[in-house]
């Protein structure tokens, strides 16, 4: 979990030599640099996407910058017009209700009651796909979707990047070889 490491290194003054980064920031940087080529051409049926901004990554982690990166990547992958903003969002987003150990703590009814706010805001977008870049969020959003009978697909971001990959070099390689 991003925050666990970030805050852990900071709060307990743990010595380390590496630089700590989020995969989301890297996706965005790689796309901007042209190292990761993606296209939304696959999305012919116009699947609508929205996003769950993870508290630990955004509000408590890297702030709106990473939330903006997240949106940038989704728009590149799914098409500019196929992203639907969710409210509230970014650093002000609702917690999904699964974090903070809630998924493990076992108070299922309370957890789902907590998740109702999340369900309502996601449902209001009418999106077909909810991107959840955090594993806790992923599990919880999937659960509240089925519990409150939503009809979206809850997925990680990488599945869609894979779908949108443009494999120029690779196809050339194929022809040559």
């Amino acid at each position: 979990m991003y925050f666990a490491v970030l805050e852990g290194l900071r709060r307990f003054k743990i010595p380390h030599k590496f630089e700590f980064i989020s995969i989301i920031s890297l996706y965005a940087q790689w796309i901007r640099d042209g190292r990761l080529k993606v296209s939304s051409a696959w999305n012919v049926q116009g699947l609508k996407f929205t996003v769950q901004d993870p508290c630990k990554l955004v509000r408590q982690g890297l702030g709106d910058t990473v939330a903006d990166d997240l949106r940038f990547v989704i728009k590149q992958v799914a098409g500019e017009d196929n992203f639907i903003e969710v409210w509230p969002n970014r650093s002000n987003n609702y917690c999904c209700g699964g974090g903070g150990g809630a998924l493990q703590a076992g108070f299922k009814e309370n957890r789902r009651r907590h998740g109702k706010a999340k369900f309502d805001q996601l449902a209001a977008t009418g999106a077909d796909v909810v991107i959840t870049p955090c594993h806790n969020c992923h599990t919880q959003v999937k659960d509240i979707c089925s519990h409150y009978q939503g009809n979206w697909e809850t997925t990680h971001l990488w599945n869609w990047i894979e779908k949108a990959l443009v494999m120029e070099d690779r196809s050339r390689e194929g022809k040559n070889g």
Binding site: C55, R59, C95, G100, G101, A102, F107
Partner: peptide, 11 residues
């Protein structure tokens, strides 16, 4: 354990 320590209140 229902508070998920999400810090939206603190925000």
């Amino acid at each position: 354990y229902s508070c998920t320590i999400c810090q939206r209140c603190r925000y």
